[in-house]
Design a protein around this nucleic acid. Sequence first.
DNA 1: TTTCAATTTGTAATTTTTACAAATTAATAA
DNA 2: TTATTAATTTGTAAAAATTACAAATTGAAA
Lengths: 145, 145
Amino acid sequence: MNSVAKHLMSHGIRPSIQRIAIMQYLMGHATHPTVDTIYKDLHDDIPTLSRTTVYNTLALLEEKNAMMSITIDSHNVRYDGNANPHAHFQCRKCGMIFDSELNVTDLQNIKYPKGFDAQQVQVFYYGTCGKCREKEAMEKGKQIN
Amino acid sequence: MNSVAKHLMSHGIRPSIQRIAIMQYLMGHATHPTVDTIYKDLHDDIPTLSRTTVYNTLALLEEKNAMMSITIDSHNVRYDGNANPHAHFQCRKCGMIFDSELNVTDLQNIKYPKGFDAQQVQVFYYGTCGKCREKEAMEKGKQIN
DNA sequence: TTTCAATTTGTAATTTTTACAAATTAATAA
DNA sequence: TTATTAATTTGTAAAAATTACAAATTGAAA
């Protein structure tokens, strides 16, 4: 049995063709794809694949902690094959999302609301990425005023 | 001039009736309302208010840093009259969002992607709130098995 | 096999958000 | 003030994302 199927089974998920394909896609693409991207890319290989199956499967994978979803902007939910906690950086210019390690002890000073039992934490940074800043600098350089 | 109008002007926003109403709503409701909630509540007082105006105004307020938006779940963008950085806790059972202080130094150990210039940070915790946990405990108590 | 349960599919509906042009309101200058 | 221009608001319609649901298919168990 392939490693993706094993990963699914270890999370209590029966490894159907579609589920393997979607999980494999997430593990091989650390690009935080949207539902639409996943659907369109996989549809080439599995022409009978349905959008609903992609939605259902992603919901299942997340519920079983085989991956995680991030809603870093208002336009689309993104999916991340890595279910371990890590911070996300999004560039406001190009929209790209970068990963970064997150040491949970970094967050230990935050005060919890009374009685709240936290199961997951997400840290999102918004700003401008290196490439876009370089581009900006270039543009500025060209301007003579 | 009322304090809400002053707040808008201090952020470079001309204080129209609609803008004051929306900003005032956010300042008076720390409930992280959605666009729809804001629209429906204000529509009672300003029957001519348009949904588009709510969207446009919220975008403007955010751009000018008079408040901030949070996309803590995939269903709706939420709005927060407090533009200062603070952590958000969402209960997965009831959906409610709680605020908590966020000391930015708590996050200083996180490694940035090379060249990334961060302008904003969001910290989201997901879990179960005190009330929902109490409810759960009650339900369990009732079960005899 | 046969039966039953799980999974997938496709369509349609719902919800959220954006686009855009017309109407209204406010600001500026003659 | 009045005319002109700019800013803002409105409403409709379109686009995009998500969910609901029933039928069809596939897989597992008896």
